[in-house]
């Protein structure tokens, strides 16, 4: 992985040669730009709140967020189950102890 190269390769030399690469000279975007700026801009129409919510819930990041939330809730409950059992177990001894006192 960290083995040195058999022929010394220099980043400086590589970038120096890369800088001399010429860009294509025949790029002409005039027609494409004119077509795009001449076309009417799509007007924003306020969708109903329901549509907005539906669109929001379709987004991957929100779905992933909910999935993570659900998983972490599951694990928290799963892990705290033992603790709850232990508390219940201690609780059931508390009655006789208190009665003894």
């Amino acid at each position: 992985m960290d083995t040195p190269s058999n022929n010394a390769r220099s980043w400086d030399r590589l970038t120096r040669r890369a800088r001399s690469a010429s860009a294509p000279e025949d790029v002409d975007v005039r027609a494409a730009v004119r077509a795009e700026i001449s076309s009417p801009q799509p007007q924003f129409q306020a969708a109903s709140l329901f549509d907005e919510v539906v669109v929001l819930f379709r987004s991957r990041w929100l779905q992933a967020g909910f999935a993570v939330l659900a998983l972490s809730a599951f694990f928290t409950c799963h892990q705290s189950l033992d603790v709850v059992n232990e508390i219940a177990w201690i609780w059931q001894f508390q009655g006789p102890v208190l009665a003894g006192i």
Binding site: A23, V27, A32, E36
Partner: peptide, 27 residues
Amino acid sequence: QSTVTAMLHRFSVSRADLEDMVQETFV
């Protein structure tokens, strides 16, 4: 456009990507 093309060529040598970027710059 040649100056902008030369600058954006540093980001991508792909012709399609380059033209898209140059076009987007002027838009």
